[in-house]
Amino acid sequence: MSSIITKSRLEARLQAEVERRRQAFLEALLALDAPLTAELHRLPPDEWADYPPLAAYPQLQPQLKSLKQADAALCQWQLGLYGLCSDCEAELTTEQLWDDPCRQRCDPCEEKYRKAQHGAWEL
């Protein structure tokens, strides 16, 4: 990136990404269940991903995972832990966070996480 990435620009980018993910989730849910979408609007957005009736829609799992990642990034920001790997606490680069403001892991930990999720551990 050619310009300097400031903390305030990174925070604005994080907020915009969180809002984008929330909107994408609401649009996907609206296409499946308009009454549930209206019900969800009565809850704080950080409670959406854990709302029990959503379990009836397995096709929403990618969006729910994305929401949880966004909520975690916001929480990390508020706690002053934003930009640290959630597994090993290594510092993520500003460029990595700019590319994905909701990023949770450094490259080595992300690779381990993905292998664990897919049962592909190598001995």
Rank of each mutant, 00 (worst) to 15 (best):
S2H: 07
S2F: 05
I4M: 14
I4C: 10
I5C: 14
T6A: 13
S8E: 15
S8K: 13
R9D: 13
R9P: 01
L10Q: 10
E11D: 07
E11P: 03
E11K: 12
A12V: 01
A12N: 10
R13N: 10
R13W: 06
R13V: 07
L14C: 04
Q15F: 01
E19G: 02
E19K: 12
E19R: 15
R21I: 10
R22K: 13
R22G: 00
Q23H: 03
Q23K: 12
F25A: 02
F25N: 04
F25S: 00
L26M: 04
L26H: 01
L26D: 00
L26C: 02
E27D: 09
E27C: 05
E27K: 02
A28D: 06
A28T: 05
A28E: 10
A28G: 04
A28N: 03
L30C: 00
L32Q: 14
L32S: 08
D33N: 07
D33K: 01
A34W: 06
A34H: 12
A34P: 11
L36T: 01
T37I: 01
E39P: 01
H41K: 05
L43E: 07
P44K: 07
P45T: 10
D46T: 05
E47F: 07
E47S: 09
E47G: 02
W48R: 00
A49F: 09
D50N: 06
D50L: 01
D50F: 04
Y51R: 14
P52K: 08
P53I: 14
P53D: 15
L54D: 13
L54R: 10
A55N: 14
A55E: 13
A56W: 00
A56F: 07
Y57K: 13
Y57M: 11
P58K: 13
P58L: 09
L60W: 09
L60Y: 07
P62K: 03
P62T: 11
Q63D: 07
L64P: 02
K65M: 03
K65T: 07
L67M: 09
L67N: 04
L67Y: 03
K68S: 06
K68R: 09
K68M: 02
Q69F: 00
Q69W: 00
Q69R: 05
A72T: 03
A72Q: 00
A73Q: 03
C75Q: 14
C75E: 05
C75H: 06
Q76C: 04
W77N: 11
W77C: 06
L79Y: 11
G80C: 15
G83N: 06
G83W: 11
L84M: 12
C85Y: 15
C85G: 08
S86F: 12
D87G: 02
C88L: 12
C88N: 12
C88K: 15
E89L: 13
E89Q: 15
A90T: 13
T93E: 03
Q96W: 01
L97P: 03
L97S: 03
W98K: 02
D99C: 06
D100T: 05
D100L: 04
P101Y: 04
C102N: 01
C102S: 04
C102Y: 00
C102P: 00
R103C: 01
R105S: 05
P108N: 06
P108C: 02
E110S: 10
E110K: 11
E111S: 12
E111A: 12
K112L: 13
K112V: 10
K112Q: 12
Y113F: 15
R114E: 08
K115R: 12
A116V: 07
Q117V: 05
H118F: 14
A120V: 12
